[in-house]
Amino acid sequence: MEITPDAFIYWQHGFARLNATIAMTWLNMVLLVGISALVTLRLTSGEKLGRGQNLLEVVVSNIRQQIGDMGLKPVDEFLPFIGTLFLFILLPNVLAVVPGYRAPTGSLSTTAALSICVFVAVPGWGIRRRGLVGYLKLYVQPSPFMLPFNLMGEFSRTLALAVRLFGNMMSGAMIAGILLSLAPLLFPVLMNILGLITGVIQAYIFAVLAAVYLAAAARVHQGQEEKNQRQQQHDKGGPTHG
């Protein structure tokens, strides 16, 4: 029994190969971009909204709300990355109930790819926000003795991200497959429903954790900015109060 869609290879030429993971990802991308483009072609800022626009606005505004709650400002700077993470995982998790569909998130390669993206994005935003030195200083806080633990934490959380999502999705497919052989009538349906819930939750968890990691890198910087701003205001207002 194959537990990963990477094993289904449709085409191979040397190192390069087209497996089910990549093919289904392309399908997901076509669906996401196609639906988005179709809806956004007829966007309106009036009072009457179409159903598609209403749905997309609900999704986007909720993602922005979550990002804002994490303390990431400005929201629209982080929206494409975190929002795409969420949708990239949500759509295959939901489509997993469709017979014959192989969710790319059930592949450790996909989850590893997404984790690597987060692993790169966190220091990327951290360095962009507070510079290379400023970001690197985070690893020696609260004391230089914590450097190995911080580095270990950085890698382990990336690994955890990848394995958590893969494990959940793979286990869902596995359990469905096993139950199908034991009690083929009713249990697989229930497990599929449970899998839907698990898939949506996992998409949410992955996106939120990514946001949290980004926030951890950026929030320090924001806190310092706020401190600097307060200091500046105090310096300006000081003589007048004094």
Binding site: D6, N19, T21, F81, F88
Partner: peptide, 18 residues
């Protein structure tokens, strides 16, 4: 379980999707 070509392809796919 990890196919590094697929990982690279998925990273590219993800960035394109972003």
């Amino acid at each position: 379980l990890i196919d590094w070509f697929t990982v690279a392809a998925q990273i590219v796919n993800f960035l394109i999707l972003v």
